[in-house]
């Protein structure tokens, strides 16, 4: 990725309060980048879902909230890292729905639908890294 990084905050995700902090930071950066109301709500909600996954399924980890630019477009990039158990059945987790592994299904699949770019790297027994980007409209 050749995205220009304009700012970066690294935050722990080890408590319920950390989830709120990450969400608020994502919201503030999205607003500062000029994202619209719907886009701000979408990326803020995705931050909440993914931070909660890191906390509950990943047994805690950390997050980065970055202001990024690509070809003149402004956006927010969120990265969540944990050293938890990983996701054994990724395609099932991404398929989402309420019948799959409790909130993990909705958290991942729902977040994916809320952002413009979604990337996940998971290794069973090693952990998971999820990176998402939401862009402001031209």
């Amino acid at each position: 990725m050749s995205d220009q990084v304009l700012s970066r905050d690294d935050l722990p995700v080890t408590t319920e309060g950390d989830v709120v902090t990450v969400r608020r930071r994502a919201q503030a950066v999205a607003q500062a980048r000029g994202l619209g109301t719907f886009a701000v709500a979408a990326v803020t909600t995705a931050a909440s879902e993914l931070a909660r996954n890191t906390l509950t399924h990943g047994r805690g980890g950390d997050a980065s909230v970055e202001a990024v630019a690509r070809d003149g477009r402004q956006g927010v990039r969120l990265t969540f890292r944990d050293q938890g158990p990983g996701i054994a059945d990724l395609s099932r987790a991404l398929a989402g729905g309420f019948s799959t592994a409790r909130s993990l299904g909705l958290g991942l699949s729902g977040s994916r639908r809320l952002v413009d770019e979604f990337d996940i790297d998971t290794t069973p027994g090693k952990g998971t890294v999820v990176t998402v980007i939401k862009w402001a409209r031209f």
Binding site: T37, F38, V40, A41, A42, T45, E49, G96, G97, L106, S109, G110, S111, R113, L114
Partner: peptide
């Protein structure tokens, strides 16, 4: 709110 309704539906909730 409008943005909350939009977000919940997009998520599938």
């Amino acid at each position: 709110r409008p943005e909350v309704a939009a977000t919940l539906v997009r998520m599938g909730y």
